[in-house]
Simulated assay, not measured.
Amino acid sequence: MASDSASLDAARATGTAAFSKFMAVLQLIADAAEPPTIAHLAAQSGYPRPTVYRIVGALIAEGLVVESARGGNYALGARLMSLASRSWERSDLRIAAADALRALRDVTQETVHLAVRSGAEMVYVEKLESPHAVRMASRIGTRVTLYSSSVGKAYLSTLARAERDALLHGIAFERFTENTIVERNALDAELDACKTRGYAEDREENEAQIFCYGSAIVGTNGATLGCVSVSIPLFRKSETPMETYIAPLKDACRAIAERMSPGTR
């Protein structure tokens, strides 16, 4: 029996390692600005080219990845997009947030995002566009950092210090604009301020000329369910942000939390 248990544990470990490699390559394809080549994927993943060839071949066979018409470059496949679409459509949080997000977009007239944490990043699971011609360039599925985005900082500000430290440990801080906070002490001070005031700010830290306010959706059990942001082109930013953006944003987060609470859905 002990031998069988050891064999099962070894098989699980091998399967987990193989799956992790598949997911790493799939994530690189998803995150690439342009459809990557095998050489690019091998360089970015650190895996040998034959390994990457096998992984990409298996992903193509399952419809999760497709090869470009010219050949040699790879992009996400229709099956993966279908799975993602079904996930978003059936998301309890996305469904519960629909009315509040629409009201927030309508009252602010700016782009609104709903985001959840995914590993050491935040990912947008819903976006409502501003009716204005000039607006933020983003899409559902966009991943943003915890330390430079308003949704990321809002999320971090709800965590206990030990949990925050564990999540930020090992993250290589990248400067996206001259305003990006890349010093840990400065970020901790910023997050403490976010916690006190109940919302976060992205002051052109993730993208130049874009100012964002973010706030967390905190459930009745104290767990952070997700975060909502309002993104504003700097030239259009109101001189009364508390009334124009922040109060409606916090109201929306409270409304979503209530919809997610047992007995209110």
Rank of each mutant, 00 (worst) to 15 (best):
T220S: 14
L159H: 01
A208E: 09
S148A: 15
S87H: 13
L249I: 02
S130I: 04
L64M: 12
E183K: 11
L146D: 05
L76N: 08
P233A: 06
Y213A: 08
G77L: 05
S118R: 08
R117D: 00
D188T: 07
L146A: 01
V107K: 14
A11P: 02
D188H: 11
P35H: 07
S157L: 07
F235H: 12
A58P: 00
A10P: 02
L234N: 09
P241F: 04
M136G: 00
R70N: 14
I181V: 12
S7R: 12
A98H: 13
V134R: 14
C253L: 03
F22Y: 12
E190S: 12
N185A: 15
T224L: 06
V134G: 03
A97I: 04
A58H: 11
S68T: 15
S82N: 11
C227N: 06
G63I: 01
M260Q: 07
S85N: 13
S7L: 13
T224C: 15
A6D: 14
I210K: 02
G226H: 11
N179F: 11
S231M: 08
D165T: 06
Y74V: 07
Y147D: 02
A252W: 01
P241W: 02
R175V: 03
P233W: 06
A84C: 01
N221M: 03
I140D: 05
I246H: 04
R203Q: 09
E89G: 01
V25S: 04
H132G: 10
A216H: 01
A133S: 14
G46K: 07
L234W: 10
C212Y: 00
E67S: 09
A133Y: 14
M260H: 05
G152D: 01
A75G: 14
C253M: 05
K153L: 03
A75Q: 15
V134I: 13
A98K: 13
R259H: 12
L76Y: 04
R135V: 07
E190P: 00
T111Y: 05
L59R: 10
A96E: 09
T177F: 05
A166H: 00
Y155Q: 05
S20K: 12
L41H: 11
T111F: 09
G219M: 04
L76H: 03
L59N: 08
